[in-house]
Every structure is written in structure tokens, then in C-alpha cells.
Design a protein around this nucleic acid. Structure first.
Lengths: 343, 343
DNA sequence: CTGTTAGCGCTTTCAG
DNA sequence: CTGAAAGCGCTAACAG
């Protein structure tokens, strides 16, 4: 509110003076590595710190120690449930390990991502986690690798969440296989005529899911007609417009639409409904991810479940773990709901 | 992956040496406040920095300057679309101002919130934004105020998002009035017999919304029967179980259920549907917030729209703005959709 | 176990 | 405009 009588933060120095001990002792009592200071002193210091409402200056600690307790997390869009669920997992796991997470949003721009990685490096985080799928249009990819490699050489850890494309630790999401299993399951349910709504072709996640789905169909000698594959933004609105496009092309030869993500599926569902094509009846829909809301839409969505929060937690574990495993793969399971009734 | 040949980060010192200038000059060229260093030198320094892939150590800058570029954001649950939308706004605005946001999750626990505020103070952030509603069960409230006041006295800025209860800058969400307008609108649509699903009674947001709704009804000489007000968790599952409770009590005398948040409304919707009570037909439902997904559920939800991202951005603006306005109030608008057909 | 004293990487006087 | 040097708050040898 009004400029308060601004005072400067209380420092360790103040605490030491107040407690009548040396700076070093105060430091040891407050943060030093355990049992090293006389109990009487320790208590005096603790009391003084409490009395003064002292908070250690993390930046100062960082420069003195040459290390921070920071985890930097990059996501494409924090309002997207896919990323916010992953972020929740990263944050939970970080807090359990006494780490603080700083967050940045790339907006799905590789340039912005590179820029942010550069900026975040300045924080000297212990860990950098990059969530969000890679693009194969790899103009700046090399620059990113350079930057991240330098970061690791200075003792940082890098973890990617998505596909194991880059030479860093990775929590691999089994997009291909998950989509393959989904396709198989849908064929078992009686579906034969498919369409797909996916993201841009250079988006690895989207591409892998489509490829996996196609592979699953191929195992049953089925396929998706090329003109039944529409591409758009990897967002809710992209799903919506993709569905609109399919509708305009004509739905005669389609009984199931596979959307490359639940978020897209949700958009597609709305588009179909608005067009009077009842999802789960006139047309079946399946997605991928199992974001929380797909249980609550109508009809509940058939999808491939990947444990989003768990993935976030795994990413941190991989980062701070001792074992130098380059990758962990997260399994996925098909969840059949009413959006794909047997036919 | 494998421990790489770990080198230490390049420092300003290295850059200065490489450029053949003094530390001070290098500092000025790289970060100093504009036009103060000879163009030739400046270029040499910039070149050296680029060649060495130098990144300033933000912690060191922070201790030297006695100030950071950090915004600390506390939310109850980042996977909740209400908070993730607000966070998106905070992050976007922060990045535009060259600030980095660090994020912590309280899990709706006041104790945890206090603990986090304490820890985050150590970062010496420029700004602390606390999103998520206050509880009136204010045991630790005083401790929180003390902590935040100390923070402000050291030059930090505190912004709350929710209700203007505490003596800090606040982005006020107009819960009462929004709910009042909603009630009026619903009465106009022909509804007369109401029920409500809300959070715990000490949750201010929930309480204000219910009070506002009741006030709106009262203006038309209507009210909610006390036994038609059920309380549960302020989450999707809380909404679900609240609806279950209403169903068990009997829906005979209810034609519209007001849920204190969209997230709860979504859960309630699913519960009704599972029980064979068709939302938008056998029973009407209205929520509050206008989170993105309510357009995509069936039926689309009538709600009170508050501009979530905008609120996040406003919070940051309020924090770094010159004007010492204590509060800005965000207006809300009623959005009628198919979950409340005229009757 | 305690205190003294160098730093950590960077900014910022303060003289040249 | 430039460089030398004194901090910023804290940790970590290093002697007592």
C-alpha cells in the first residue's frame, strides 16, 4: 500500500550479533551440515533468528556455495491440462526434495524456448526440465543442444519429457505404442473406417501418435484414407477446426475419429455436436493422454492413459537420481469409454 | 548421461580477460545502465561474451544489487484450471517485464502456505502473488500477515488475488456481485427452486458466492431451502459428491443447482448424469468462473465469467505499478448457456 | 567446537 | 570513460 518505512532485510550478521556468536557459528547453527555446534549456542542462534524473523538470503547462499536449489521447468502452455498436470508432478516432487521450481512458458515456439533456456541458465538451476514435444523442423535444435550441453558441463542436469530424440535424460512417453494399442482395441470393438485429427507433421508427439495408430491398423490390414487425415493446431481450437474440416469433406466414410490429444478431441467433440453429429452415436471419437476432464465430457472419452503427474515426478527423480539412466519409459494403457461404443 | 568432464561456468571475469578490459567495463557493457562505455569496447565485450557463451549469474547479480527479478507465485493447485489460467496470466505478464516466476503449491493448506511464504521470502523476490481464496478460520492468519508485512518492509510487494480481506494490494474478484447477477438472470429465465453445492463455509470465495446468490434471489423474494445447500470439497470430486448428496436427499423440489465453481459444477454434472438425471433437462446447473472447458461439456455450462488470465496479468501490474492503489476490482459477466434453458 | 578470514560472481563507488 | 577496490550475504577452509 503506501510506501512503508522500508528497512533492510535482517542478515546472518545481525543474527550472529544478536546471539553473541560469530558469523560462522550462526551459519553453522542455521544451515551448516548437522551436529557441529554446541547445543547452547545453537539454541541461542535459533532464538535470535526467530526473534529477528531472519530468512537466509538464498541468492547469497547460492553464490557462496556455487549451487542453487532451483528446478527450472519449461512448458508450452501452463493453461493446457496436459502441461499443468505434469507441472503439478514436478512441483510436488521438487518440494519434497526441498527444491524450488521456476517456470517459463514457451508458447510452443522453438525460438522462444531457446531464449528461455539461455535466460534460465543464468539462474544456475540444478535441473532443467523441458516438457512439450520436440519438433523435427530443427533449425535451432543445434543451438539448443549447445546451450544445454554447456549447462550440463557446468554440473546441471537436463531432462526432457516426450521423445528420446536428444542426447539428454528423457522421460519417454510411449506415444507410438500407446496409439498402436488403441488402434487394435478399436478394431476389436468393430471399427473399420477411420479419420485422424493431428498436429503439424513436424510435431513429434503428434507424428508418433499418428504413426502408431496407423501401425496398429496395419496389423489388421486396415488404414486411414489420406484425405481423412487432417492437420491443425495442437490445441482445443485446432481440434475443433480439424473436425469442421472433416465435416465439410463429408463424414460418410468415417465411423471413428482419432484425435492426437485429448485436448484436440474435446474440441472436435464440440464441433461435431454443433454440427448435429452426435459423438458416440453418429461418430466415435478417441483421444490420447487421459486428461482429467475427459471423464466429465459427454460422452466420456476413450483415450490412452498416461500418468501425467507421475511423469512430472519421474522427470525430477531422473534429474536428481544417482543412476545415470538416460531414459525411463512410461507405460500407457487404453481406457475405453462411451465415446467409442462397440459396433 | 555419464558424468561429463565438468567445467565451471564462465564468469564475467573470463569475459573481461578475453576482451582485454576490466571487470567493471565488462559489467557495464553487458548489464550496466546504458550508454556509458565506448562503442569499441562494448563490442569487444559483447563478442567475447558470445564467444564464451557467457550467462550472467543471476544469484550473484542479486546479491550485488540487493534485488532480484523474481516473482513468487503461490497457488492452491496448479492442475486446477482456475489456477493454471491465472498462472498463465502472471507468467505472460512477468516475462513481458523481464521477470522470472517461481511457483509453489499450497494444496489449500494455510499452514503450508505460511511455510511457503517463509521459504520464498528467502528468494528476496520483488513480488509475491498469492492466489487462492482466503479462509476465515484464521488461526495462522496473523503469522501470515506478519511475514508478508516484513517482506514489504524490505521492499517487496505483495498482491492477493481473491478478496480484499488483508492489508495488502489485491485483485478483487467480484464474487458476491457476480453471483447476485447470476441469480437474477436465472430467476428471469423462470427458475424458482434452487439448490447449491459449495465449499466449506470458512472458504471466503465459496461463502461470498453463495451469499451473493442468495442475495440475488432475495431481491425476488426467493431463497434456497437450507437443506438444499450442501457443502463439500472445493474441487471436481467435491462437486460430484455434493450432487450425490442432493440426489440422495431427493430432487423433487429442485430445478436448478448452483455450484460455487465451474470445477464443482463439472463434477456435479457427471454425478447427475450417472444417476440418470439429465443436466439441462431434468435439472439445470450453473457454475462460476467460466473456465475454458465449460464450453465443451454437455450441456455447455451457464456461469459467471471472470477473466482468469487477465486477473493474473493485473496482479503483476498492480505489484510493479507505481500507483499505490490498494485494490482493483475485476468485473464479471453472466454467460447463459444450455445448462439453464428457459423454463 | 569456535572464530577469522578468504572468497563466490557481480555491481558500484571512487579515483584517475 | 575506465579501472581498482570495496562491498553484497553467506559458506568453507583454516587456524586456534
Amino acid at each position: 500500500m503506501d510506501q512503508p518505512p522500508r528497512t533492510s532485510p535482517v542478515t546472518l550478521h545481525d543474527v550472529a550479533r544478536e546471539a553473541g556468536v560469530s558469523l560462522a557459528t550462526a551459519s553453522r547453527a542455521l544451515n551448516g551440515s548437522e551436529r557441529k555446534v554446541n547445543e547452547a549456542y545453537r539454541e541461542k542462534v535459533l532464538a535470535a533468528a526467530a526473534r529477528l524473523n531472519y530468512t537466509p538470503n538464498l541468492s547469497a547462499q547460492a553464490v557462496a556455495k556455487g549451487a542453487t536449489n532451483t528446478v527450472a521447468l519449461l512448458v508450452a502452455d501452463i493453461a493446457d491440462p496436459y502441461f499443468s498436470s505434469i507441472a503439478a508432478g514436478v512441483i510436488r516432487a521438487s518440494e519434497q526434495s526441498g527444491l524450488v521450481v521456476t517456470m517459463a512458458v514457451t508458447g510452443r515456439s522453438p525460438d522462444r524456448e531457446l531464449e528461455l533456456v539461455r535466460a534460465l541458465r543464468g539462474q544456475r538451476p540444478r535441473v532443467m526440465i523441458l516438457a512439450g514435444s520436440r519438433s523435427s523442423a530443427s533449425d535451432g535444435e543445434q543451438a539448443l543442444i549447445t546451450e544445454l550441453t554447456a549447462f550440463e558441463q557446468n554440473g546441471g542436469r537436463v531432462v526432457f519429457i516426450s521423445q528420446n530424440e536428444l542426447p539428454f535424460r528423457t522421460v519417454v512417453i510411449d506415444n507410438t505404442d500407446g496409439a498402436r494399442m488403441l488402434a487394435t482395441r478399436l478394431v476389436e470393438l468393430g471399427y473399420r473406417r477411420f479419420a485422424a485429427i493431428t498436429g503439424a507433421d513436424d510435431l513429434l508427439t503428434s507424428r508418433d501418435r499418428l504413426a502408431g495408430f496407423a501401425a496398429g491398423l496395419a496389423e489388421h490390414d486396415l488404414s486411414i484414407r489420406p484425405d481423412h487425415i487432417v492437420r491443425s493446431e495442437f490445441t482445443r481450437d485446432g481440434g475443433f477446426s480439424g473436425a469442421v474440416q472433416l465435416i465439410e469433406q463429408g463424414l460418410d466414410d468415417i465411423d471413428l475419429v482419432f484425435a492426437a490429444s485429448d485436448v484436440m478431441a474435446v474440441g472436435a467433440l464440440s464441433a461435431f455436436r454443433e454440427a448435429g453429429v452426435v459423438p458416440g452415436d453418429a461418430i466415435a471419437i478417441a483421444g490420447f493422454d487421459d486428461i482429467p476432464t475427459v471423464r466429465d465430457i459427454t460422452p466420456p472419452l476413450t483415450t490412452v492413459r498416461i500418468p501425467l503427474e507421475e511423469i512430472g515426478a519421474q522427470a525430477l527423480a531422473l534429474a536428481i537420481g544417482e543412476d545415470t539412466d538416460a531414459a525411463v519409459t512410461i507405460g500407457s494403457t487404453v481406457v475405453v469409454r462411451e465415446s467409442t461404443p462397440p459396433r
